[in-house]
């Protein structure tokens, strides 16, 4: 099993709840890295705070478990000093878009070569099921006992508008597509955003009567559709998955190096 080569087995079984989608993302990520053939020593994983961010502890790369919402800021620091390393930044939905919302949009704008993985379970799981900016209107949470009146962000639209050069959405159900999308994102030279929709049976599922982990996985299947499918035209409420944006723009570290060389000429 490729997973065994890339994880810190001494921390297993992991602390995620039964049926949590984060483990499936870890599994998909390991397969993607195996397919690319990256060496463990060339990968840095930087995470913030939350259930999702615990993934950095379980992976046997160089890992940084940093502060809430600021994973991208730390990752940019690492990348600027060592542009040869591959940066992976797993974040939760609240971590990336609420606490770290500003870091997120500016990292997209800068087009620095790293992969941001937003594990979207639509709730703050670790702290007890508070609603997040991805919960959406009409959902229930421990802090929204009479339903949530906030509208949700759309990560894909937001990352696209902020200028990310690779934007994709995958789900924890579509496990054959997930490693492929992650692989494409990691290979992309520039800032890549991958939203992975994952189930949180313990908080989001329980509060919103979505049933067991199995039911939540089934929902991911029935509520999503590939980009541009006929089903989407017939039922606009379906969520599209696939690669939305893939374009080439000057990469930040390369541009920075160019400026350094230009400045050194004056000496």
């Amino acid at each position: 099993m490729p997973a065994r080569d890339y994880i810190r087995e001494r921390f297993f079984p992991h602390m995620w709840c039964p049926g949590c989608g984060h483990g499936i993302v870890l599994n998909g990520l390991v397969h993607a890295i195996e397919n690319i053939g990256l060496k463990k020593n060339d990968i840095v994983m930087v995470s913030g705070i939350g259930c999702s961010s615990r993934i950095a502890g379980y992976m046997d790369f160089h890992t940084l478990h940093t502060i809430h919402g600021r994973a991208l800021a730390f990752a940019i620091g690492v990348k600027m000093s060592r542009p040869d390393l591959t940066l992976l930044v797993p974040m939760g939905d609240g971590d990336a878009l609420s606490i770290g919302g500003n870091h997120f949009i500016h990292a997209c704008r800068r087009n620095i070569d790293m992969t941001a993985i937003v594990m979207n379970n639509r709730v703050y799981g670790m702290t007890g099921g508070q609603y997040s900016p991805l919960s959406g209107h009409g959902t229930m949470a421990t802090t929204a006992p009479y339903t949530n009146i906030d509208q949700a962000f759309d990560i894909v639209s937001m990352a696209t508008a902020a200028g990310a050069t690779f934007v994709a959405r995958a789900t924890a159900y579509h496990v054959q597509q997930l490693p492929n999308i992650l692989e494409e994102a990691i290979r992309h030279k520039g800032f890549s955003v991958v939203e992975v929709m994952t189930p949180c049976p313990t908080y989001f599922g329980r509060k919103n009567k979505e049933g067991s982990a199995v039911n939540m996985m089934d929902n991911l299947k029935t509520r999503t559709t590939p980009i541009g499918s006929k089903a989407k035209q017939e039922n606009p409420s379906l969520i599209e998955r696939g690669v939305f944006v893939k374009k080439e723009l000057p990469e930040y570290c390369a541009e920075y190096q160019r400026i350094v060389e230009q400045a050194m000429k004056g000496k």
């Binding site: 870890l26 599994n27 998909g28 054959q176």
Partner: peptide
């Protein structure tokens, strides 16, 4: 190998 890929706990191979 769908079970292996979908296992959240990496418990099946």
């Amino acid at each position: 190998k769908l079970c292996e890929l979908r296992c959240s706990d990496l418990a099946i191979e």
